[in-house]
Write a protein that binds this DNA or RNA. Sequence first.
DNA 1: TAGAAAACATTCCAATTGGAAGGTAAGTTC
DNA 2: GAACTTACCTTCCAATTGGAATGTTTTCTA
Lengths: 211, 211
Amino acid sequence: MGSAEPSKDTSERGVRGHRTQAERSAHTRAALLDATIDCLIELGYARTSVHEICARAGVSKGAQQHHFTTKADLMAAAVEHLTHRIGEEIVDAAGSLPPGPQRVERGVELLWQGFSGTLSAAVMELWVAARTDAELKAAIRPVDRALGKSTLALFTSLTGESPSERTETLFWLTVNLIRGLALDAEIGGDAVRRKQLLEEWKRILVGTEAR
Amino acid sequence: MGSAEPSKDTSERGVRGHRTQAERSAHTRAALLDATIDCLIELGYARTSVHEICARAGVSKGAQQHHFTTKADLMAAAVEHLTHRIGEEIVDAAGSLPPGPQRVERGVELLWQGFSGTLSAAVMELWVAARTDAELKAAIRPVDRALGKSTLALFTSLTGESPSERTETLFWLTVNLIRGLALDAEIGGDAVRRKQLLEEWKRILVGTEAR
DNA sequence: TAGAAAACATTCCAATTGGAAGGTAAGTTC
DNA sequence: GAACTTACCTTCCAATTGGAATGTTTTCTA
């Protein structure tokens, strides 16, 4: 959701030493958003204050307020920034996966990597916070939906499945299972068992799909 | 949802006016814990303050501090109280389920009911908070583990499965899937699709198990 | 190059937070 | 029934919170 961009382009203008305003602005914005995510991962939502965010970003209180009027604003923008980063992460992982016949296994592994990392923990914080925060929820939902759809597209294209309704169902089952497992990981569940569960799920998927 | 009822006793002793100390103590404790859970569900962890909890419980600030020295103490105790209540909820639901040949379907339905209700939302709040709170995490883990095990026992006894390793794996897969779905429900995902996914999972389970 | 505007910095504040201190009443024990 | 223990209440405080007000620097435009 594009917030107001008063000037036109983010393109390479800074060949000379000086920075254009748009560049300065984008830079502080990014610093604030990254710091926000860091705080969410390290401190959790409850302990994340705008003071701390500003300190980590090396940005003054006023600058923060110039870019994001309220804390909810900042968090909403962080969601978007976050899902973009997760999307990139998944795409990167997809590119580095070796090709082979085991499409389904690869797909599951891919989703697991994308939805169980540290970035995912930050998303979890915001989701849970959003449950009781209507403003945040409204900001998160569309972005999350977009991430889901693009991931589904990537998933199907990677596994080479025809985009049938059944494939989609299996995809969402996988995503939800992985989210549950990610939660288990967060609270320090048994990693070995998680691995077993994931392997079993792959087996089930292959068996089910081949029917 | 049992919020604080300042005057009413847990056991039928109050025929006469006087209450024993143990009763008084247990009563305020329960009131505080219930109020804590209410706050977690309604406000979320971030917005839950001990002031608010005390107000809802109809208990003074000092009394709270007498029973639970610190906020983390209170939360830790709330976890236990919470898992007990969820356990009871599941047992109750199990008792009211009609007997029949569809054991697996019943079991899944049962787990869904237990792990997707409002109480589960409170657990989620505490889990996520515990990720960055070592004290809370230490308090939660054993209790959660106990809940998992007792639920597994109930599950196997209800479905009449032999407690094989495979059954256990399928159980944990179900639990984690349901937790993922519960998360989806919290942020306002599509309820119809969740229903579809759960039905598909039942089908898969039946097919897989019959092998 | 003057001045408008955006980006940024400093300072302050009202409100809320978790927790401590100190006092009172009720129950228990001998 | 007196000493003692537990349960409870009122009041207070230092720290932190999110946000507003106001001042300064940098970039853009005419």
